[in-house]
Every structure is written in C-alpha cells, then in structure tokens.
Amino acid sequence: MLIISASMGAGHDGVARELAGRLTRDGAQVQVIDVLRLLPLRLGPLLRWWYRTTVQRTPWIYEIVYQVFFVRRSPVSPLARLAAPRLRALTTREAPAHVVSTFHLAAQVTGLMRARGTLTAPSTVLVTDFTLHRLWLHPGNDRYLCPTPGTAHAATAATHRPATAYAPLVRPAFHTRGRPAAARTVLVSAGAWGVGQVTRTAQVLAASGRYTPVVLCGGNTRLARRLDAAGLGPALGWRDDLPHLMAAAYALVDNAAGLTCVEAFAAGLPVVSYRPIPGHGRAGALAMARAGLTAHAADATALLAELDRLADPRHRARRTAAAGTLFAAPAAETLIRTDDPARTGGA
C-alpha cells in the first residue's frame, strides 16, 4: 500500500504514520511518501516555506488564498498536474495495490490520474479536516473516508463517490484518561510550527488568576523564548509525552483544528477554539463547534466563560462524550483493507 502525505506542519504526517503502523501490524507492506517531493523544481519546499511564512507574518493573505482557491469552484490545481508524472513513475515501478491520500493536494493528484486512467490502483482519500474544501474533492478518486458522517455525506454529494466516517487515527496512548489537574492547567496549542496569536491567549489565561497556561510551541523556539521572557511559561517545545500532558490537563485551547484536537478528543480533554489561524483553521474550528465537539470562543470573555463552564462535571461529561462518539466509527485501516472501494457501495 502507498500512503501519500505532506510535510505541511505535523498533522498529516502524524495521521499517515499511525495508519502505516496499523496496516503494517495487519500484515501489509506500506510505503509513505511526501506529495511535496513529487513536485519538480523544488516547488515543494517553496510551497511549504510560503505557507509557513504567510500564516506567521501575513495571515490575512492566506485567508484570501483559502477563500479563492480552496473554497470557490475552479479547475484542478495546476500543482496536481505537475506532481502526476512522478507519481505515475513511482506507481508503475512499485505497483501498489491501494493508494491512500492524507492531504488534499495528494487527493487532487490521485483523482486526476484515476480519471485519466494513469493510476490503476484504487484510490482512497482519508480526509483529516472537519470541513471540506474543494481541493479534497476530486471525483476521480474511488472512496472518501471522513471524520464525521456529515462530512461523508458532503463528500458523496460533491463527488458522487462512496464516503464513510472513520474513527480518528491517534496513538493508543492518548486513550489513557487522567484526572483534571487541581491547578487548572490549560494547554495552549500552536501547532507544529508555533503559529497564531497564542501569546495573547496565554496573557488572557494568566491574567484571569484562575488558569495556568502551558503553551505547546512546537518547533518555534523564538515563541518559547518570548513567552518565557514575558513570564507566560511554561512554554514547551516539541514533546513526545503529549498523552501524559493531556491526561493531567484541565482543558486544551486550540487554534488550528488539527491533529492535536483529535488527540484531545481521544484523551477525554475538552477543547475550546480561540483565535484560530486563518483559512482551514478558522473553518475547521467553526465546523467542530457546530458539530458540538468543541466550544468556540469569540473573545477573551467568552474564552474564560467556556473554561469556567467545564468545572461543572455534567457539562464537562457532555462535551467529552460528544467528542468521544467519533471513535465509535469503523477503524480506517479496516475500511481501507476491504476490496476495491469502487465496488463497495455508498456512504
């Protein structure tokens, strides 16, 4: 099996690694590749640099790009056409029995190739976002696996291809539940790159006197130094013990609607979205709130109010139970290991 991910942050790669591990334990031979490496002329690293720099320094530009190129209807991304020749060469050489995409550009490439007949293996798109933008949706793909039944129905409506909800792919360690810390430690997630207005979030929490912010800065060492200098620590870099931190935390304040949110769902840790990054971050945060999986705080007052509500055991239990229902869906690896998805029926 071939899994196509993307080194855009850590979420898509994290999902791909977990899926690859499960499929390998089931006896499959699995190869994971980065779709950015399929692009010629070093366009992949350039694309990653542009995205990271724009989100950090001029997020309003990324919001415009997202609305124009991700949300509105338009032809297949030209990047997909550029990546297709290298993927065709790889699949011709390796002859995978199944191809799975965990990133929207990869889904565009595989959909384009399936429609042209240049990819013979069935193609499954494993959607990692809680909101569907058009780049996930190419009708050439055989099947879609989506994080919720609602997104699965939307995928079928847009592509007329089978779509099914799947249980989120997180490490088993996240399913270990702990007791909320008495000090009301609140984890603040800034993603793998440490982006967004998390310094302001930490200031709001610290100034309340009721919560202690612990900011997850990812690989952004400058952010960690700024927070420490401002007395807004602890500010943590990349951590492998996130399951342990979540098990002891009171809540997670998130700004990206990505893998860290899903890991918190598995850990039974309530999530409040605040100051989400533009584009897919804001869209995903609003979609999760509409589904009752998280709360979305529009301002600092609302943020503290949402956190205060979590002190009520009944409210807390309702919130974590709603998120926990996601894991009742079928396992992604089980769905992927079925026969040719083009013959397995609808959503």
Results as ranks from 00 to 15, higher is better:
103 F>R: 00
148 T>R: 06
47 L>A: 14
56 Q>V: 14
132 L>Y: 01
124 T>I: 00
135 L>I: 14
56 Q>S: 01
117 G>D: 03
72 R>K: 01
105 L>W: 02
55 V>T: 11
59 P>Q: 12
137 L>S: 09
69 F>P: 14
48 R>L: 08
63 E>N: 12
61 I>P: 03
91 T>C: 10
101 S>M: 13
84 A>G: 06
60 W>C: 13
152 A>Y: 10
143 R>Q: 13
136 W>T: 08
102 T>V: 14
118 T>G: 07
150 G>W: 10
67 Q>L: 05
62 Y>Q: 14
146 C>E: 06
84 A>N: 05
97 A>S: 13
136 W>C: 01
131 T>N: 14
96 P>G: 06
49 W>I: 02
104 H>D: 06
119 L>A: 01
125 V>D: 07
75 P>I: 00
44 G>E: 00
145 L>H: 08
43 L>C: 05
147 P>G: 00
74 S>L: 15
110 T>M: 04
149 P>K: 04
96 P>Q: 04
56 Q>A: 11
147 P>Q: 02
117 G>E: 04
110 T>A: 04
48 R>F: 09
90 L>Q: 11
50 W>L: 11
112 L>D: 03
113 M>R: 06
71 V>A: 09
101 S>L: 01
64 I>H: 13
140 G>H: 15
66 Y>Q: 06
103 F>E: 11
52 R>H: 05
127 V>W: 02
151 T>V: 05
105 L>M: 03
113 M>A: 00
151 T>L: 06
98 H>L: 10
121 A>T: 01
127 V>F: 02
55 V>Y: 10
95 A>S: 15
133 H>W: 13
150 G>R: 14
137 L>Q: 08
61 I>M: 13
66 Y>V: 00
81 R>D: 15
57 R>T: 08
142 D>G: 14
132 L>K: 07
134 R>Q: 10
50 W>H: 09
125 V>L: 06
51 Y>I: 10
82 L>V: 13
62 Y>D: 10
108 Q>A: 03
42 R>G: 08
123 S>W: 09
151 T>I: 06
75 P>S: 15
149 P>H: 01
82 L>I: 14
52 R>M: 15
133 H>V: 08
101 S>C: 15
85 P>E: 05
134 R>F: 06
123 S>L: 00
100 V>W: 02
